[in-house]
């Protein structure tokens, strides 16, 4: 791949600009669905775009912080993590731009970068709300990260490869949502934990700790964090639906399957109330991890021909 095409794929299509627009669209879809479930009209289609442009046009306040370089650098690192993760997943149903054996692990860690950056951002400011938000965000990472990884390893083990592209092809005629239902549900809920959607929004609980780790961010920094989160939504949903819903080949299946996953996530969002942070951790380690480990064991036995 020469430099020009790699720049094109990084900045315009399928990562970069296209991904940005997709992120805005998915963000709007999520908000609109939540509004409809609550019997509201909901935001207009350009709402996330207007929000982001407005934030970019606003003043960025530098609060009393420990390390200004970190304050300005963290949003950029978070955004680049999400953009880089997009290169390894079958976005819009096209084959991943980049693929190598083991890229599943790299992608999952790139997706965690956003949470780590938010945690550091909260720790970096001297606001007590950000500090509590950061502590909760980092506690939550330890809760959902392992089950989420294990849930994605289920299809990977069955396909016999840790390469997203290969698993995507293998999933075409194996619907893992049916053969590994536990893994599917846990991957779905893990994704919601990763994105800090309700019921796992304790790190940014508005009613208790203002806005969590991002309380002190205004203007550009906040905008970049929001974009990174929208991108992570798209990449995460792509990953889960590629693994569990029969692979993503072509643009139409991509939109049908990912929007179906988003629909499911929205239902969980409006149905469930916020969990306390100890409940979140307890839920993941007492039920999530055990269940997904059991399923992984069954997969391994089946793979070895023992079942």
């Amino acid at each position: 791949m020469n430099t020009l095409t790699s720049f094109f794929s990084l900045l315009i299509f399928p990562a970069g600009l296209t991904l940005l627009l997709a992120g805005m669209f998915y963000d709007w879809f999520d908000r609109k669905l939540v509004a409809r479930f609550q019997n509201r009209v909901g935001p207009r289609w350009f709402q996330p775009i207007a929000d982001v442009i407005k934030l970019f046009a606003k003043e960025q306040i530098t609060p009393g912080i420990k390390n200004p370089a970190l304050f300005f650098g963290l949003p950029i690192v978070a955004l680049s993590g999400a953009l880089a993760a997009a290169l390894y997943v079958p976005l819009l149903g096209f084959a991943p731009v980049h693929s190598f054996p083991g890229d599943l692990i790299v992608t999952i860690y790139l997706l965690s970068l956003l949470t780590i950056c938010m945690g550091l951002a909260g720790w970096n400011t001297s606001s007590r709300f950000s500090l509590i938000g950061a502590t909760r965000a980092l506690t939550q990472v330890f809760a959902y990260e392992a089950p989420f990884l294990l849930a994605l390893l289920g299809p990977a083990m069955a396909a016999g490869s840790w390469q997203i592209d290969v698993i995507n092809d293998y999933a075409r005629d194996h619907w893992f949502a049916i053969s590994q239902p536990v893994g599917f549900i846990i991957a779905l809920i893990g994704l919601m934990g990763k994105l800090e959607l309700p019921p796992f929004d304790a790190p940014e609980a508005e009613t208790e700790i203002v806005a969590g780790a991002l309380t002190e961010y205004s203007g550009r920094g906040l905008a970049i964090f929001r974009i990174a989160k929208a991108l992570e939504l798209v990449v995460g949903i792509t990953l889960v639906s590629a693994f569990y819903l029969g692979g993503l080949q072509g643009v139409v299946p991509f939109f049908v399957k990912t929007l179906a996953v988003l629909f499911l996530m929205t239902i969980f969002q409006v149905l469930l109330t916020r969990l306390r942070i100890d409940q979140t951790v307890g839920l993941w380690w007492r039920f999530g991890t055990i269940l997904v480990l059991a399923q992984l064991l069954i997969t391994i036995l089946w793979k070895g021909g023992l079942l």
Partner: peptide, 21 residues
């Protein structure tokens, strides 16, 4: 609340004054 729903104008309640207009 849903009866008046100002989110259709893009108005949202934020917790932090740093985010607000």
């Amino acid at each position: 609340t849903p009866r008046y729903d100002v989110e259709r104008f893009g108005i949202k309640l934020e917790g932090s004054p740093r985010h607000a207009d």
